[in-house]
Design a protein around this nucleic acid. Structure first.
Lengths: 377, 377
DNA sequence: CTGAAAGCGCTAACAC
DNA sequence: GTGTTAGCGCTTTCAG
């Protein structure tokens, strides 16, 4: 018995040693791979050594510094190409205190307005030699804060932001303003923020949409408002109210419903509205999604749009054009807004002025009249 | 006369000097501003000096190195907070040869599939402490090449790519494979590429869609194919052909139309198909956009969908659900694909294996049957 | 026109 | 536990 146990114990020890051997073997392989990795990365020093010149000359040549003779430039560039040299931008960034990177913070990337905006930013940024790093706040204040800190630590040269739905404080942006790093807000902005802003005139849009419904002969117009903590939804609602007043129509609070404008919200809202003693005959919705769900519901209960009920949405989502009936809506120039934001930001990055003057750029919008509101040709 | 000229010359000199003075003044102001900027940026050395300890201790403390006593950690962290210390990640990146950044290359950011995919990537990346930097190739080969080089120079730790429509060569990706930087392709991939891939089974999807039309009693089924240089469109078409063959239906080349699947393309294609001697009674479209335009056209000329003509699209664009008739389509799990791609990439970044084994992950798809193809309940 | 040297801010091997 | 020191790869004075 004893013997057997001893035997096993010895065996185990042997196995253990084998394991250890394998492990060190593996470790050294990894080590070697690592070294190989490093060797494949050619630096300006490698080029310098090969040509018996200094690294600074190589650096200057590759940056087209006029003080270097054409001959050496050619020599250096040729070798760089041959060796497959790729500059380490991280090192350059550290030295230059500039990353050529701009950060974007949006609530959600996969919303048509935002992704189109980002596309516009990317276009301009790429042309100007900037990278774009994006993050989504998912409409959460805490995540927005984290993102902003992270982008700061990553030393972005500037940042473009649309606020989360929950954001009411703005301390986290002071990091940027204190270090004089340009900041451009768009769409969802805060009035109390001293910064550049790219917006549309949501008030005018709300007015325009409502006036259009009035012009089409609708008499009792309701409004689906988004969270009025956000400047955009608040202004749209105020535009709506103002249009009613201007036309001497009563502003009736039971006709204004506040929610988050999801499809569910839209359906609930229209049910609630139709249950009123004197229900409305039209509604201006804070977005197209809710407008859509209202159309679907009305169709399902046999109310005709626009004959019996008029609808105007907001944002010109891709589906608005193709549903039946197609949805009248307000078109925001998302791509152009992105381009403009990027242009403005990059300009400020490259021409930092002190003291700064903040601009607010209002982009043009368009009321697109489609079937859902068109009773008169 | 002479006097006058002398006078002017002296005046000019004076003005010149004033200018110079102003210039130096300005320069020093700028200098000062610069220094102020620098001073506001607190580093670990500032913390170290203040506490009479070394920078390395500070570094270790902030990174929660267990070798530092809790007491000093607390002291350091408290001061860091007080001074508003923000780590310079660029410096850390350079030193660590790691950027915690992953690059994404897509044809177009503001396409629902891609932006949703990106959103999925961002979710996972953020959780794992990675930044996401995105670029769009605009379906141009040259731009794709530039982007890939730029991302490499920016030392991304890994990259996620969907190829441009024009891409036929893949040399630009060797930068990454040579340095053993993980690379994950998705959706539009190249079979000859040795890399990880996240795809759906486009062949099976094409088959499924076509089989569904057959099951619904459609007899003569056409196909709108995208550019077959892309694996996705090619496989969809092959699935279509295979389904016909399996059901002993003839594969008729005049029923297969190749284009870029825009709305225009869709309209042209359907006209062409209806002009045939024996036109089809259904079509499987390579995407939802072309399916939509066909529906619109058929409605306009009084052909009923699905009674007279069946349609299946691809991708489950948001509008597909809400148009009338709603479009039967294939749903790709874009968000999940993005999450999976990010998980895979990050895993490979953090567990670099040598030699690498490349995986191809096929994500599940779903045929969503809606009105445009449903003749039998 | 080119080189030497210092340093961007952080980390980690090595020493004590 | 903490300090010393040496870089990561690049740019940029300053000096010749």
């Amino acid at each position: 018995m004893r013997n057997a146990i001893d035997c096993i114990s010895v065996l185990l020890k042997i196995i253990w040693h084998i394991c250890m051997l394998v492990k060190t073997e593996l470790a050294s392989t990894i080590q070697q791979t690592y070294k190989m990795d490093k060797k494949t990365s050619v630096t300006i020093h490698d080029i310098a050594r090969e040509l018996n010149i200094s690294a600074s000359t190589v650096s200057r040549a590759l940056n087209n510094n006029p003080r270097i003779s054409q001959a050496t430039k050619d020599k250096i560039k040729a070798l760089a190409l041959k060796l497959g040299y790729q500059p380490n931008i991280i090192a350059s960034n550290l030295r230059n205190q500039k990353t050529n990177t701009i950060g974007i913070v949006v609530p959600l990337i996969n919303r048509h307005f935002f992704s189109t905006f980002i596309s516009g930013v990317e276009d301009v940024a790429f042309e100007a030699g900037y990278n774009v790093i994006i993050s989504q706040s998912n409409d959460l204040f805490e995540k927005e804060k984290q993102i902003v800190h992270s982008l700061f630590s990553n030393r972005v040269d500037g940042m473009i932001v649309s606020l989360s739905m929950q954001t009411q404080q703005f301390d986290h942006f002071q990091l940027f303003s204190k270090k004089n790093i340009p900041l451009v807000f768009f769409d969802r902005v805060a009035p109390q923020l001293d910064a550049d802003k790219i917006i549309v005139d949501d008030f005018a849009c709300g007015f325009k949409a409502t006036q259009h419904l009035i012009d089409q002969g609708f008499k009792r117009i309701a409004h689906l408002a988004g969270p009025t903590a956000l400047n955009t939804y608040k202004a749209r609602m105020e535009g709506y109210r103002s249009a009613l007043e201007k036309n001497n129509l009563p502003v009736n609070d039971e006709l204004i419903i506040f929610n988050r404008l999801t499809r569910m919200d839209g359906q609930q809202a229209i049910k609630q509205l139709l249950a009123l003693d004197t229900p409305p005959d039209a509604v201006f919705c804070g977005n197209d999604t809710s407008a859509l769900s209202i159309i679907v519901y009305l169709k399902s209960i046999g109310i005709r749009v626009p004959e019996d009920f008029g609808i105007v949405g907001f944002s010109n989502e891709p589906f608005s054009e193709v549903v039946t009936p197609s949805i009248s809506t307000i078109k925001q120039p998302a791509q152009e807004m992105g381009q403009k934001a990027a242009e403005l930001l990059i300009f400020e990055i490259e021409h930092k002025e002190n003291p700064r003057k903040y601009q607010t750029i209002t982009m043009p919008t368009e009321l697109i009249v489609r079937e859902s509101s068109l009773r008169k040709s």
